[in-house]
Design a binder for these strands. Structure first.
Lengths: 160, 160
DNA sequence: CGTGAAGTGGGGAATTGTGGTGAATTGTGG
DNA sequence: CCACAATTCACCACAATTCCCCACTTCACG
């Protein structure tokens, strides 16, 4: 999605307790429903937003987190075409959803298609949001990460 | 100490509570539980984070330590794919856990698989975190260290 | 030995994952 | 504008898993 400004800068650091962590596998039923990991459901009680991720996955934000991003994007100058395109790409692909009583959401078909998700998905915690991946695509992404994690970390000058 | 021998912790000076030192062997039961060495449990009361290590092991951090690393990573721009990958590799492999009343944690299956851990593990103190190794892999790693300690130190360009 | 702490295993209760059924809602054609 | 089919929604039910607590055994130390 090209270079879309300093969106990251507005994300306030999350505490360890409400950080999204881990990797969880779920089935998707014929209705397109997928369960959100039980330990995260409270964060999404008041609503959530799903949207296209920059990579081939679906991102899931709690409402407050999404609001912050939205505010940042709407504050960009609409005179620039890149701003307008970013705005479209962000909002047009996004859906405001709610958990059902079992803690599931219905993922819109367009997003499922984009992410290549059929009947089995992996939900991944990435600090301040969740990502939903097709099982195979996630395996591929993960193997890339495994190979390159050390180099990437070194390049980013971050030490674990 | 029975079959949970304390192998290397001979020189550990009392009163150095903020440093993890030593090498301890534990069994892992069918539920994937492993005991944290009793002397370190206080550091982990109130939570801990386990994650994939860069080598074939699991790393265990107290919350404050983990928070510091998370902050470094979230300060990177998510507009870059390498940053997103590092973020994923870090957070997706991590789990926020708590000790049960016996001082054990349940290691998620994905991490056990990654580290090749089945029914017996070695817990190693590495200054500001613990590492959990499969017994055999740890033996191999240790023999490498034993043989090449001098070269390794030199390659790391550290003067002791 | 007696006592306490640590390592290990197990069992019952609560939670979670998952599929389904009937009511409400939407869209479409007459 | 109405009727009817198709879809969506909200809730129910059950199997499987996970969680939490208790119990036993071994070892260290008086």
């Amino acid at each position: 999605m090209g270079n879309c400004g300093e969106l990251w800068a507005l994300w306030e650091p999350r505490g360890v307790w409400d950080m999204f962590l881990g990797e969880y596998e779920y089935n998707i039923d014929q209705k397109g429903r997928v369960a959100i990991p039980a330990r995260f459901r409270d964060e999404f009680r008041g609503g959530l937003v799903v949207a296209r991720g920059y990579d081939r996955c679906i991102v899931v934000y709690p409402l407050p987190e999404w609001q912050r991003m939205a505010d940042k994007i709407t504050s960009l100058p609409l005179t620039r075409q890149t701003s307008r395109r970013l705005s479209r790409a962000t909002f047009a692909s996004a859906y405001n959803l709610e958990l059902d009583r079992q803690g599931r959401v219905i993922i819109p078909a367009s997003l499922r298609d984009y992410a290549g998700i059929r009947d089995s998905a992996v939900i991944v915690g990435v600090h301040n949001c969740l990502e939903i991946w097709d099982k195979d695509l996630w395996a591929a992404e993960k193997s890339i990460m495994t190979e390159q994690a050390a180099e990437i970390a070194e390049a980013a000058e971050v030490a674990l």
